[in-house]
Structures are given as C-alpha cells and as structure tokens.
C-alpha cells in the first residue's frame, strides 16, 4: 500500500516538473502542414523566378526583376501567416483536449525565447533585402530559424531541438551553394518540417 504511494509521488513530481517548465501542447501535425505550405510556396516561387519572362540568367546565377521580388515576398508572407495560424489553432485544440490553457506561463516563455533569435534574423533579412544582397538571404533565414528552434526547445517538446539543428546545418551548407537558396529553403522549411512534425505527431498525438 505504502509502496504504491511512493511510486505515485515520484510520478507526480516528474509530471509537475515537466508540466511547469515545458509547453507540451505544441502540435506536430501543424509542423507537417507548415511543411506542405512551404513546399507549395516553393513551387510558386520556382515558377515566379524561373519562368518569369523578365528573369534572365541560369539556375544558380540570375537577375530577378523587382516585380518578381514583390511576388516572392507575397508568397513568403502567405506561407508564414498560414503556418503560424495553423500552429496556433492546432495547439489550442491539443491544449483543450488535455485540459491545459493555451496562453500560460510555459507558452509565454516558449514564444519569448523563440522570438528573440527570430526577430534578430528577421531584421538581418530585411537588411539584406534592402541592400539587395539576396545570395545570403536563405542561409541566414535558415540559420536564425534554426537558432530560434534550438533556443525554444528547452521550453517545449525536445524534438524541436533536432529540427533546429537540421535547419542550422542546412543553412551552413547553403553558404557553399549560395545560388540554390530556393532548393535549401524547400528542404528546410518544407521537408524538415514535415519530417519532424510527422515524428512528433507519431510520438505524442497519434496514440490517443
């Protein structure tokens, strides 16, 4: 009888420690969907860049018209907004199912720590666009997004850390192949999101 209580105590200690330090309602499925949006976005970006009549040059070295840049910016923004909205909605759903609040101390901490590297990266990205230095845009975006994931992973499911490390690696490799930004963006934001999101969904959500 006593033993069972001790075991329960230990279980409760462990549960409370992770519940109070990590936001566990992050939805893996939203990662998969974000990856799919990114791939669809990459497809449209590919069409915009390489089949736009105003574009000249070959695959790895080309000159993009201003019109195409605006179009790419619009595609990227739509993918971003859709991904964030999906992430929030599915996490709210997951939190409701496990009777957790979506906006609590742990999710606040997660968002703040995710936003710090991401905001710096966003600033650097805009700076590069303003200076019309597009070659380093994708590596930089991948690296800062990866750093944001690694930083945020302490406050949520551990898989996010590996997503971040993969993004950083892709970003660094991309610096050796600067003309292939779109391909690396599709690999990172598309394939990696689908892979890790799928893994998280498989591990934490599917069983229920």
């Amino acid at each position: 009888m006593e033993d069972k209580n001790y075991l329960n105590d230990l279980k409760e200690i462990k549960e409370m420690m992770s519940k109070s330090s990590q936001f566990i309602s992050l939805s893996g499925l939203s990662g998969v969907l974000a990856g799919i949006y990114a791939l669809v976005g990459a497809y449209f970006a590919y069409k915009t860049i390489y089949f736009d009549t105003s574009t000249s040059g070959n695959y790895s070295y080309l000159i993009i018209s201003e019109n195409a840049v605006i179009k790419l910016f619009a595609i990227a923004s739509i993918v971003l907004v859709l991904s964030i909205a999906t992430g929030i909605l599915l996490s709210i759903k997951k939190a409701k199912e496990s009777n957790d609040k979506i906006w609590n101390a742990t999710s606040k901490r997660l968002v703040i720590n995710f936003m710090i590297p991401l905001a710096v990266g966003g600033y650097m990205g805009l700076y590069l666009i303003e200076k019309e230095n597009f070659a380093l845009l994708t590596p930089l975006t991948l690296i800062f997004y990866g750093l944001a994931c690694v930083n945020a992973s302490k406050y949520t499911l551990g898989d996010v850390r590996y997503l971040g490390l993969s993004m950083i690696s892709l970003g660094i490799i991309n610096t050796f192949f600067v003309g292939y930004g779109l391909l690396f963006a599709a690999l990172g934001f598309g394939v990696c999101h689908i892979f890790y999101g799928g893994m998280m969904w498989f591990k934490y959500e599917r069983i229920k």
Partner: peptide, 26 residues
C-alpha cells in the same frame, strides 16, 4: 501531501513562480 509535493516540484525547475501561475499548475 500532493499540493506540497507539487509546489516543490514546480519550484525545482522554475526560478520563481507567482501565486496565480502556481494555482494554475496545481
């Protein structure tokens, strides 16, 4: 006691926690 165990567990992994947050966790 369950509540005391909970309070200590939360404080082991958090630098500091306010009353309402603690209430929500437990």
């Amino acid at each position: 006691h369950r509540i005391r165990l909970g309070i200590m567990s939360v404080l082991m992994v958090n630098e500091s926690v306010d009353f309402n947050t603690m209430k929500e966790f437990l």
